[in-house]
Design a protein around this nucleic acid. Structure first.
Ligand SMILES: [Mn+2]
Ligand SMILES: [Mn+2]
Ligand SMILES: [Mn+2]
Ligand SMILES: [Mn+2]
Lengths: 249, 249
DNA sequence: TAGTCTAATTAGACGCGTCTAATTTTCGAG
DNA sequence: CTCGAAAATTAGACGCGTCTAATTAGACTA
């Protein structure tokens, strides 16, 4: 059984495409392969030769392209990963379909079998644990933009609505970045802001557990200069307000 | 701000390594870069030239290697992703450190910013929702090997221990693959077995939501031949028993 | 059946990212 | 200051995966 990841990303994608074409149209023509992979026909030929050398496809010049049983097996497993990862991203992480599709078609090649297995297990766990994690997370996301009222999980049926443990957990980290003085530092717990600010901060590298040090602060706290992984950044007050830190230990 | 993914995986890794070396030892020597990336010194030179052309490193023949502020920025963000993804895999999915490290160093290049953001949000959600998802999942995993007693979530403090909803959910899908007759099919809900069997099945492509059709069955149900994504497989009874299906609709 | 269009292939090129085998430069010990 | 070792660089090669342009084979049409 040929291992996933033993071939290049490109060859694995060729294999997947050939498999799909055969399922859909009974045969895999060079032109169709080329179209689907968005390459020229002349690029397909050497790919087929390489796959043929690995005993994954049957191909001879001007012959019909088929998969060997090894190739069939590998392609089916790749497609399984592709579809599972896509579904995982969409249904659990709420990633839009188009993006989930793109990411899944990359992850399928690079994820180790161990991580993949754990992902499958987590997915099963979410489905069977009865905690309704999916819908809680959906609500969490849906309410990010209107947050600030102190409510983390606004789902009406949430059994933790009045849970003191959760409140304690929240109260433990109410410090925001803008409440620090120059020289002080903290570890990021989360970002509490609408998607625009959140997006900007995450893209700048403000991630959970990253240590941030305040360097300088303008008179009214805007802008505020910080250091993050040894790299200097300047934040607007509105952004600094959104960053919730763990209490410094 | 240079986008992650605009460079090749290789160049991004070079950048990361240079950044780390400068942080650790104040300078990035060609030999050290080569050692850390496990390539020959002569491979480093053209990489530095390409990075230099992109204005990410300052490098001239026989000169000292430094990062431009653009390069510093990109490197810091890459490293942030690397570390976050690694931590996500370890702390949420329970992936062993070594493997999480490897996977993170691949995902950092390939994951779209959208998926990454959702991952960060999910992580924050898990930490703030108060549901203790991490420890429940740990228990779920820890108990896979001893499963079969009907208990899904054996955590003593689990608030869903006696939840009728969850029981109903479980009862809705008690059909196992081996209870089907030839010609019948079902959709996989999960695999309930020890890690060895589970591992084998997942690697063969038996994943949640995949449709399986029983083709043939030996007299005592061992082996059982199935079709999965158009591909034929033969399972032992012990494996077929582990596959829990959704009730056919 | 000859003509025409399209699919398939070949030829030749290119950039990336690596290598090995020289060669040159640098640097520190004596 | 000299010399030898280590680091850096150059030269030349290779495989992958792509391209464009030219050619060939096939298949359908009039
Ligand atoms: Mn792919
Ligand atoms: Mn794919
Ligand atoms: Mn990497
Ligand atoms: Mn990395």
């Amino acid at each position: 059984m040929m291992k996933i990841g033993a071939l290049s990303e490109s060859l694995e994608d060729y294999l997947e495409i050939i498999y799909q074409l055969i399922q859909e149209t009974k045969e895999a023509r060079i032109k169709d392969i080329a179209d689907r992979k968005n390459v020229s026909m002349s690029s397909v030929i050497p790919a087929l030769r390489r796959l043929s050398k690995e005993n994954l496809v049957n191909y001879k010049t001007r012959g019909i392209v088929t998969l060997t049983s090894q190739g069939q097996n590998l392609a089916a497993r790749l497609l399984g990963r592709h579809e599972f990862v896509k579904y995982f991203l969409m249904s659990l992480l709420d990633v839009p379909e188009e993006i989930a599709e793109r990411d899944a078609c990359l992850f399928e090649h690079y994820m180790s079998p161990e991580t993949f297995r754990k992902m499958v297990m987590f997915f099963e766990f979410v489905d069977t644990c009865g905690m309704n994690i999916r819908s809680h997370f959906e609500d969490y996301i849906a309410n990010l933009d209107k947050q600030g009222d102190g409510e983390i999980c606004p789902a009406p049926e949430c059994p933790f609505k009045n849970d003191s443990f959760r409140r304690r957990q929240r109260w433990g980290m109410v410090k925001t970045l803008s409440s620090l003085s120059p020289g002080e530092s903290g570890r990021v717990a989360r970002v509490q802001a609408d998607t625009a600010i959140r997006q900007r901060l995450i893209d700048m590298g403000v991630l959970p557990n990253v240590v941030i040090t305040v360097e300088r602060m303008a008179p009214l706290g805007d802008p505020i200069e910080i250091k993050l992984r040894g790299y200097h950044l300047s934040l607007r007050k509105e952004e600094a307000d959104a960053i919730i830190l763990y209490p410094s230990t």
